[in-house]
């Protein structure tokens, strides 16, 4: 297995008038070819910003203030803007959350697809168009020739997201960052899209970071799971281990709030309290104030602990024996 992406100590901060928002604060990611990493966390925990940082698409007042990103063994920190343009959409592609907003409303689908090909390859319009059509077919869009001539508003949300996925796959990238691609869609369409994306990554050997706030969605598609809270990874490990035996109380809580068939009737577990104010994070463990396992030592920030199976950032982890109520 070759390592495609290695992120160490990534920090991205926003310097706002009201103060510094440490949206991403020391995130590590490691991803192999063809692997799917699920990045989970509440809204506002810094998942999207992590994705944008890897694409080098952070705008003022934000800035990547620390860490290293290496992609296929190459350090990206010294890359020029033109080299970034070569990389984006070509080797690393991204899919956004809201399909209603990601396609340009005044450009036809074919224009938006062909430009994505021609930005990276010297091919004729006709060739590019054919490739665009074939890719639309691959993501399960019927009558792709007609869709090419349409404007975004003439397509449904699910169709638009398929188009966005097709655009991401156009140049057969090594890595796709999918930022909550199904959150805005109906449940039925959601599972179709997940299925489609999974099939494509298998076919093409593309690695993927699948961002979601829904642990259940991620569990179905990811090989590894990273759980994010207030800008940090609080738990990481292979999907099965994390799901079966979450060690961080936050993961435990997230898992408890997932309805599932075999615990029907049981009261849904809820994480108490509100998402933290990113401008004034609690001292010590950021999850402390909401945590029912909090102890005195939690006033100091916990480091990453390593068990045989997974890593977690907690002074008083959920014991290995305790299983989530089934």
């Amino acid at each position: 297995m070759t390592e495609i992406l290695k992120v160490t100590g990534l920090c991205t901060h926003f310097f706002t008038r009201a103060g510094v928002v440490k949206a991403v604060d020391g995130v590590d990611i490691s991803l192999n070819r063809g692997e799917v990493l699920g990045l989970v966390g509440e809204s506002g925990s810094g998942k999207s910003i992590t994705g944008f940082s890897i694409m080098n698409l952070i705008d003022a007042p934000g800035r990547m203030t620390g860490g290293r990103i290496s992609f296929k063994g190459r350090d990206l920190s010294q890359l020029s803007e033109t080299a970034w343009q070569d990389l984006r959409g070509n080797r690393i592609a991204m899919i956004f959350q809201d399909p209603m907003m990601t396609l340009n409303p005044v450009l036809r689908i074919d224009v938006q697809m062909i430009e994505a090909i021609q930005a990276h390859e010297k091919v004729s319009r006709t060739t590019a168009r054919e490739r665009a059509r074939d890719t639309l077919g691959m993501v399960g869009i019927p009558a792709p020739d007609e869709r090419l001539k349409a404007y975004p508003h003439q397509l449904s949300g699910g169709m638009r997201q398929r188009v966005a996925i097709a655009i991401a796959f156009l140049n057969k990238p090594d890595l796709i960052i999918a930022d909550e691609p199904t959150t805005a869609l109906d449940v039925t369409i959601q599972s179709q899209i997940i299925h489609e994306a999974q099939k494509l990554t298998r076919q093409t050997g593309t690695a993927m970071i699948w961002i979601s706030h829904d642990l259940a969605v991620v569990a179905g598609i990811a090989d590894q799971i990273s759980v994010m809270y207030a800008g940090r990874i609080v738990e990481h490990g292979p999907t099965d281990y994390v799901i079966d035996n979450p060690r961080h109380p936050y993961t435990y809580g997230l898992l408890g709030s997932v309805p599932s068939a075999n615990k029907r009737g049981a009261r849904l577990f809820q994480i108490d309290g509100m998402a933290p104010n990113m401008l004034a994070l609690p001292r010590g463990c950021a999850f402390g104030p909401r945590c029912d396992r909090a102890v005195d030592v939690c006033a100091a920030a916990p480091g990453m602990s390593q068990s045989c199976t997974q890593k977690f950032r907690c002074h008083n982890p959920v014991p290995e024996a305790v299983k989530v109520a089934k």
Binding site: D86, L103, N104
Partner: peptide, 21 residues
Amino acid sequence: QDYVKFARAKGLSPRRVILVH
């Protein structure tokens, strides 16, 4: 807007992003 960020994520040149999108 997202569509501008998406256009940048496609690797388009700033010129094309601004003049077309």
